[in-house]
Design a protein around this nucleic acid. Structure first.
Lengths: 138, 138
DNA sequence: GGACCAATTCGCTGGTTGGCAAAATGATAG
DNA sequence: CTATCATTTTGCCAACCAGCGAATTGGTCC
């Protein structure tokens, strides 16, 4: 019990994992989409997603070469859903979260194949009209 | 924002700090009482309490030589109260938490001075008996 | 089959954290 | 003022963790 609670809290107690959860609130996402928005190494994102999955906060689905993640629907962990509610009701107007959502919009406008090939470069073409491409990513 | 959220999550993402919060749900407690129940070095408990305080989850009050901690009432951190609610609604029947509460009852039966002098030894001698429990107000 | 690809796992590194003992702090009692 | 006491701070160590590159896995396409 305490262990399960600790697993969930620890999973949520990381800035980038929270960013991932906030992204997934908008719906299912492919790993490469998350990677592009957070601008971290694929290995790092994969590990974060693994931690979130172990905590029962997300679940995965494979479709061909791509793996999609979404917020957990079933109760893998008795505290996971409550933690998701907490996250969902928080950080609504956090600047980083807002910027991530803005980037996600641009990511969604790019075909998955292009995104996986070019990574963040796939966004620049669209971002040119939009001057500021993340002045300070973190 | 994200930083404040992270501070709170990290504070809650530790087994022993959660145990402290669950203890404080029963009311205000002196540091030496918490130390006796958790059975850790005073320095360790003090550091944990400091982390909880920095996160805005608890507040302190000094009374003579003793320092009392209680769950935060004011909004030092915009996410602290929500986290406290989450903790309060969790772990109701966790064995460790239950055992801590049992010990706390015994601790409450011992005068503070005796507790500070003898630590855990003060419990074995007066395991049963007298006086009102709960020195804590409210 | 083999080339290719997205994602994961492995191995490593720098930074963080929980734990304690010892010293420092701040208050009380004589 | 001095001694004493509860708590906090400091210094240190072992364990853990986020991050990345390299190697591996599981899958598609030719």
């Amino acid at each position: 019990m305490l262990e399960q609670f600790e697993t969930v809290s620890k999973a949520v107690a990381d800035r980038n994992r929270v960013r991932i959860l906030k992204l997934l609130e908008t719906g299912e996402l492919c790993v490469c989409q998350v990677t592009t928005v957070l601008d971290l190494a694929p290995a790092t994102i994969s590990k974060h997603l693994s931690v979130l999955k172990t905590a029962g906060l997300v679940q995965q689905r494979r479709d061909g070469r791509w793996v999609y993640y979404r917020l957990a629907e079933r109760e893998f962990n008795p505290y996971a859903l409550r933690a998701l509610v907490l996250v969902a009701s928080s950080l609504a107007d956090d600047p980083t979260v807002a910027e991530d959502r803005r980037l996600l919009h641009m990511v969604n406008a790019v075909p998955l194949q292009t995104l996986c090939d070019q990574g963040r470069a796939a966004l620049s073409s669209k971002a040119q009209a939009n001057t500021t491409c993340c002045g300070g990513p973190s």
